[in-house]
């Protein structure tokens, strides 16, 4: 039996991800803020064949609770096969520009609190010397752009943290996966106008499962974002600074 820990389990991508594993002899430990919605997700996974589903409602951005939380996770799952970190918030860039408190809050949600959890998780995985830590970062972290650089900063820092973590844990047999989705049609992006580049959370979930199976280091989802971001990264700064991306 596989033990899967999902932080941010009511996010659309995380939910589709869990559904893919539900009939693969798995036990889930799901964490998110809203207990009613956690129950909705848990019931669904049970019907789809999950062996066991544990739920815990917790605000993961409150880093003071992380130590206690990890102790309870280890107490209930003796071994973690996959840990997926999927929570986050799409920062309102113009609002952040006028409010430093808000900027810091967004950085905490999308980066600092995740790094706090990863620090604790890394030690668990290092000790068990196996398993996969998969974290949802973003293509937004590949280059700072005027339209969303607070979110981009958080995801960029997270990506670098994961590089370091991978470098440390690879020799211990732990797989660290950085997931960089492009535009995904989820509640987080509900107000955006959707075009050709948008994909469903279901297809992202499938991409994550494949990347875990193939032990990829970094995966762009869908794959073409690797090339889009390659081009964006190649634009010289003196030209880039005048563009409005």
């Amino acid at each position: 039996m596989k033990n899967i820990l999902i932080l941010g389990a009511t996010s659309a991508i995380a939910e589709r991800f869990a559904q893919r594993y539900a009939n693969q002899d798995c036990r889930f430990y799901l964490v998110s803020r809203n207990q009613i919605r956690l129950d909705n997700v848990a019931d669904d996974l049970r019907v789809r064949g999950a062996k066991d589903v544990i739920t815990e409602s917790l605000d993961l951005t409150e880093t003071s609770g992380h130590n206690h939380f990890m102790t309870s996770v280890i107490g209930r799952l003796e071994h973690i096969d996959i840990a997926l970190i999927a929570y986050g918030s799409l920062s309102n860039q113009p609002a952040c520009e006028g409010d430093s408190e808000l900027s810091l809050k967004e950085l905490n949600t999308n980066c600092l609190s995740v790094i706090s959890l990863l620090t604790l998780l890394a030690n668990v995985f290092e000790k068990q010397a196996s398993g996969c830590i998969a974290v949802i970062s973003s293509v937004a972290g590949d280059r700072g752009r005027q339209s969303n650089y607070i979110y981009g900063t958080a995801k960029g820092a997270l990506t670098i943290f994961l590089q370091g973590l991978r470098n440390r844990l690879d020799r211990k047999g732990v797989h660290v996966l950085t997931i960089k989705p492009g535009f995904v049609d989820t509640p987080m992006t509900q107000d955006f106008k959707k075009g050709l580049l948008w994909v469903s959370p279901k297809s992202i979930a499938k991409g994550i499962e494949n990347a875990i199976k193939r032990k990829k280091d970094t995966v762009y989802l869908p794959f073409f974002w690797r090339y889009i971001m390659l081009i964006i990264k190649f634009i010289p700064e003196r030209i880039f600074k005048r563009m409005s991306l």
Partner: peptide, 9 residues
């Protein structure tokens, strides 16, 4: 389409 959860079987 996103109300796609099973509840009980």
């Amino acid at each position: 389409a996103n109300l796609q959860r099973f509840i009980q079987f």
